[in-house]
Computed example of a mutant assay.
Amino acid sequence: MSPKTIVHLVDDTTAGGVMRMLDFIETNPEMARLGSHRVQVVARGRLAAPQLDEEIIVSHLSVSWRNLPMLVGLRARYADRTLIHVEHSYTGAFTGLKVRHRTRFFALLRTAYSLFDRVIAVSEGQGRWLAERGLVREEALAVIPSCVDLAPFLALPGRYGAPRIIGAIGRFDEQKGFDTLIRAFRETADPDLRLRLIGEGADRAALEELASGDSRISFHGYSSTPAAEMAKLDMVAMPSRWEAYGLVALEARAAGRALLVAQVDGLQDHIEGGARAVAGGTVEAWREAIETACKTGPALHIGIAWGRISAADVQRTTPELWAKLLNKIAGHHHSRDAA
């Protein structure tokens, strides 16, 4: 496959998973072999499609009724181009918790996704939901996990002793479930355990109030050097209520840290990669999971070691999956043109 020109459209440049994934796409040597990548910011809710010269247009845009006219315009204006959408947000757990009018919501998703030649799910868990709900045509659906540069995490010495410092990394909001984690941690009895919450968000004051009185719990702001923060931790906890994939989980695996994840959406992918599942999402379930994990043993060590190996494999296979997808699209277009 000859190198392509590829533009990535975004409407949210907040520091987080989407922008870090795009940084990986722009800087990874294997991704560079697929073509030249450019990121273009698009104002959310604009009506007209932007002027674009690239052969392949990749949307990382939010799907909403407000954005739908622009997505329709994008398909109409570039009917001869390849359009791909990467779904970073919507999942089964999100729908169950946050969507009241599901028939209308599913109509929006089916309409929006039908405008694209391919729709990429960022995890197997999310992909199963998209397929089972019939939201994306089977032949149009691909699963490519999100990735970041894992070299700084793979370079860290693994932690194979009994975990004592537990980290929770991400936005301080309802999605991440840090309120449940704080309540669960407060019920643990070991005075030597520590919980570090790393991030920013609207719920910070409420979380600090919830943690008040337990000196073992500390809050730390957003860090532009996540590997340096990971180096301070023995274990990472991710009690998310919904999560399309969970880059923090991938980073924890690469760093050789024990990892506890809620059994939802894309976090389930990390269970096969060495993470320990916490079922139920209750305070009691998380308290028990923390206490059990902190009693280190061979099973924990095996999970940590496998996590490092499998995380490195994700970094290797992500560009391969992109190449496979672009080759398949190129072959389809060639067959169509020949006909």
Rank of each mutant, 00 (worst) to 15 (best):
T103W: 15
T82E: 06
G134D: 12
R66A: 06
L108T: 08
F94N: 14
R137F: 01
M70S: 09
P50G: 04
S89M: 10
S62V: 13
P29D: 04
R110K: 15
T95H: 12
A112G: 10
S36A: 15
G45T: 10
V122F: 05
T91P: 00
H60S: 10
A32N: 07
L47K: 13
R75K: 14
R38D: 01
D53I: 12
T103C: 14
A32D: 04
A107N: 11
E54F: 02
I120A: 01
Q40W: 02
R100A: 14
M70R: 11
W65D: 14
D80T: 08
F106P: 07
A48M: 13
V136K: 03
A142C: 06
R75F: 00
D117F: 06
V136R: 06
L52T: 03
W129A: 03
I57D: 09
D53S: 15
E55N: 01
V119G: 03
V42I: 14
F94Y: 15
I56L: 09
G127I: 00
R46V: 08
L141W: 11
R137W: 01
A142M: 07
R102P: 12
R133G: 04
G127P: 00
V42M: 06
G96P: 03
H85K: 10
T91K: 01
G96R: 07
F116K: 13
P50R: 07
L83Q: 07
H85M: 11
Y113W: 14
S64H: 11
R33H: 13
I84G: 09
I84K: 06
R133M: 05
L47F: 06
M31G: 02
T95Y: 07
R137N: 00
T91D: 00
R46G: 09
P69T: 04
A32H: 02
A142Y: 09
R100C: 03
V119C: 03
V119P: 03
E139Q: 12
F106Y: 15
S114F: 05
L130A: 09
T111V: 06
E124A: 14
L115P: 06
T111H: 10
R46E: 11
A49H: 10
G127W: 09
P50E: 02
E30V: 00
F94A: 14
V99D: 03
V122P: 02
S123Q: 05
S36F: 13
V41I: 11
E87N: 11
